[in-house]
Design a protein around this nucleic acid. Structure first.
Lengths: 216, 216
DNA sequence: GTCTATAGGATGATAGAC
DNA sequence: GTCTATCATCCTATAGAC
């Protein structure tokens, strides 16, 4: 029985370590030696558990990124259940809050945003997974919810662009933290994160309502 | 004299090729062999002209990215001179237009956004250059201009967050084109780019004005 | 499942001829 | 300035002992 236990633990440690390093440096900048030595296991273990390095990268998405996206969605829904949204503002705030003040640690959120941004900027083998299982469900869910609350319907095109804009801000404020900290001098403590949620909410809210006014 | 001419041409070809490949794949995913063979020159020429691969990367920023950022700034100013901004909307539109419909080709704009995003997400040796010579001048210029036009002043903090949000959208719509094309089904033709500028303008404009209302 | 040892190949960099 | 040839080092992946 102990070999099974060890198996799971080693495999998990590799996945955790690999995710951190892939997010930080990118696939090609990380060697299997770096991963295994950081995970405290043998050089050959990646090939044993995952076949090859490419497949390890895919498994990081299947076993870590997708479940986390799922957790984010659940957190988003919980926030909405606690305080049923009556205005677009409630919805945007719930979304920003789920990502920035939700169940993720600062490192986890940044890692998630980095991996997502990498895939969005330069699609790799994991692109299909990201689009089909993270982006599309999010956009459909969120879009439908938003439409149902808006005082008057928004065209599919404008809705998509607005959702992309909100997503862009949330991801950007998460993954570009080095520049933002550098230029504003603010570190990502609770106060600043709360300010970020406020900002995104107000900025996006008026953005969306502006779209409606213009479309009248 | 011909050796000097050849020098410049080869060096330039290497810089052009390297920029495209670094932007597309990232520093570590590109080998000097790949660059030199794509540039049609000898393997040793990178070390001869730039010393080593690291320094070639820096030179790509010094000789290509920074000048392009400068061109963008000039284009932005020209647009403002032709139509002096009277409202925040004019300013946001001029900014979005300079980047999305300005002097850059689609490939050039995407390349620029990719390189900037890479540096913002994972700072490298070129980070200082990007922050000091691209980000800071832009934020200061643009922030001052925006303040001077706003009906009532915005706090430094809110101003910065708004500028980062606009920047996030412009960069995102440029560098994440694979996902956006994939999901919306729209290719980046003139019509769609014009829609993007409109969208960013309206979205950001109401975002900024929303900030003022809230601050009253 | 984990280890060592090693194969087989790609990489960045340099020396030296032209 | 450009080339060829080459070195030392790194890489991924595998074979085989335990």
């Amino acid at each position: 029985m102990s070999h099974v236990e060890n198996d799971v633990i080693t495999k998990d440690r590799i996945l955790d370590t690999a995710e951190v390093l892939f997010a930080e440096k990118g696939f090609h900048a990380v060697s299997v030696r770096e991963i295994t030595s950081a995970a405290g296991c043998n050089l050959a273990s990646i090939n044993y558990h995952f076949g090859n390095k490419d497949n390890l990268y895919l498994e990081v998405f299947r076993a870590r990124v997708l479940p986390r996206a799922h957790r984010l969605r659940m957190s988003f829904r919980q926030i909405l259940e606690k305080k049923p949204p009556r205005t677009p503002a409630d919805l945007v705030e719930a979304m920003a809050r789920a990502f920035i003040q939700g169940p993720l640690t600062d490192e986890e959120r940044r890692r998630h945003a980095q991996l997502m941004s990498k895939e969005m900027g330069k699609p790799s083998e994991a692109f299909e997974l990201v689009v089909e299982q993270v982006m599309k469900p999010f956009l459909l869910d969120y879009g439908r919810l938003l439409q149902s609350i808006l005082p008057r319907p928004l065209s599919e095109e404008r809705l998509m662009l607005s959702l992309f804009s909100i997503l862009a801000m949330v991801l950007h404020f998460s993954f570009a933290s080095p520049v933002i900290t550098r230029i504003t001098g603010r570190s990502y403590n609770d106060e600043f994160k709360s300010q970020l949620v406020d900002h995104i909410t107000r900025f996006s809210l008026h953005g969306i309502e502006g779209q409606i006014e213009e479309a009248r």
